[in-house]
C-alpha cells in the first residue's frame, strides 16, 4: 500500500505528514514540466480514466497533463454522450471500466461523497477531483504548495477564505489542509454564504472584507457562483462587489503585502477586480502551474498502492 493508502478522497482524512509528503514530492515534479521533453516513464502502462460528471476545464486538463507527463494512458469520459446519459448508475459505469482493467479513476461529481462511494466499491485507486460541496483535495494541495512557495512556510500563516464558503468544496479542502499544517484560518463573507458552526473548527469569522484584509497574509478569493444570486443568497452582483469585492483600493489599506489566490474561473468585477487579479500580489497563474505538479505527485504516490488483482478479495465483495 502506498504512503497515502488506496485513494485520495479529501484532506480531512490525511495526516499532516501525508500532506507534507505530497507537497515535498511535488517539488521535483515542477522541474519535469520545464524539461524540453516534459515526460517521465514513472506510470508507464498504467491506465487512468478521468470520469467527469460536471463541467471542468482547468481541473480536467491539469489532471490530463499530469497523467501524460507521467506516461500513463488516459481516457476521458464526459457525461454527455456516455452511457450515463442513458441512465447507467455510477457503480455500473465504474465496474464496466474496471472490467477493462483500469488502474485509477479521477472523478468529478455533483454529489458530495460520490468519490468515497466509488472508492469503496472498486479496486482501482480513486482520486476525488471535486465532489459536490464536500472536498476538492488537489485544489487544496495546490493552494498549500503555492502559499508555501511564496512564504517558505505554512505554520502560523494567516489565510482568509473569502466569499461563498458555504457552498465551496475548495474552501473545505483549504480549511482542513491549512489547519493541519498549522496555519491560522479565517473566513469572510455574508452570513448567508458562511457555513454554520465553522468557528468550532478554530476558524475566525469576518463579515467585513476590510477586517480580513487587515488580519491576513493571504486571501483565497472564492468564485461566487452566479446561481447563488437567483437562489436569494445575495441581493445583487453589484451589491456583492461593493461590499465584498477585493479591489486594489481596498488592498492599499492592508498593513502588509497580501498574496491573492483564486481557484478560478474568476468573475472579474464581482468577487475580484481585474487589477487585483493581474496585479503583482496575485499568484493565480502560479496556482495553475503548481496544480500539474501536485497532481503528478498524488498520482505517483498512489500508484504504489495500485490494485493487486490477485490479492485483497475483500474489495470485490458487494457492500
Amino acid at each position: 500500500m502506498s504512503a497515502l493508502g488506496k485513494d485520495l478522497l479529501g484532506l480531512e482524512g490525511l495526516s499532516r505528514e501525508q500532506i507534507q509528503l505530497i507537497l515535498d514530492t511535488a517539488e521535483p515534479f515542477k522541474e519535469v514540466s520545464e524539461r524540453p521533453i516534459k515526460k517521465v516513464p514513472a506510470l508507464r502502462g498504467k491506465t487512468i480514466v478521468n470520469l467527469f460528471f460536471e463541467a471542468s476545464t482547468r481541473t480536467r486538463i491539469s489532471f490530463e497533463f499530469a497523467e501524460k507527463r507521467l506516461s500513463a494512458d488516459t481516457v476521458n469520459v464526459a457525461v454527455q454522450g456516455s452511457s450515463v446519459s442513458k441512465g447507467e448508475t455510477l457503480v455500473d459505469t465504474a465496474r464496466n471500466l474496471e472490467a477493462m482493467r483500469i488502474d485509477m479513476v479521477v472523478i468529478r461529481h455533483p454529489a458530495s461523497g460520490a468519490a468515497r462511494f466509488l472508492a469503496e466499491r472498486i479496486r482501482s485507486n480513486v482520486i476525488n477531483a471535486g465532489d459536490g460541496k464536500h472536498e476538492h483535495p488537489t485544489q487544496g494541495l495546490l493552494d498549500l504548495l503555492t502559499l508555501r512557495d511564496r512564504f517558505g512556510r505554512l505554520e502560523g500563516l494567516k489565510v482568509c477564505l473569502c466569499g461563498d464558503v458555504a457552498h465551496s468544496r475548495v474552501a473545505r479542502s483549504n480549511i482542513w489542509g491549512l489547519l493541519k499544517m498549522g496555519a491560522e484560518v479565517a473566513v469572510c463573507g455574508p452570513p448567508s454564504l458562511l457555513p454554520r458552526g465553522v468557528e468550532a473548527l478554530g476558524v475566525t469569522v469576518f463579515h467585513r472584507i476590510d477586517e480580513a484584509i487587515r488580519w491576513a497574509d493571504a486571501l483565497n478569493i472564492l468564485r461566487l457562483q452566479l446561481e447563488r444570486m437567483e437562489a436569494g443568497f445575495i441581493p445583487s452582483l453589484r451589491e456583492y462587489n461593493r461590499v465584498f469585492g477585493v479591489t486594489s483600493e481596498r488592498l492599499t489599506r492592508a498593513p502588509r503585502e497580501l498574496i491573492i489566490l483564486h481557484p478560478g474561473p474568476m468573475n472579474r468585477g464581482v468577487e475580484i477586480d481585474s487589477d487585483v487579479a493581474d496585479g503583482p500580489s496575485s499568484v493565480i497563474l502560479p496556482q495553475v502551474t503548481n496544480g500539474v505538479a501536485v497532481r503528478m505527485a498524488v498520482l505517483y504516490l498512489l500508484a504504489g498502492g495500485a490494485p493487486d488483482w490477485a490479492a485483497d478479495p475483500s474489495r470485490v465483495e458487494e457492500r
Partner: peptide, 27 residues
Amino acid sequence: LDITLYRDDLQQIGPRPVVAETRLPTA
C-alpha cells in the same frame, strides 16, 4: 540527475517517496 522516475522496478518497490532534484545546466 535523479533517476527515480526512470527506474524499471517502481512496480515492485512502490514509489520511493523522495524524488530528489534534477538539474542539467545546458543542453
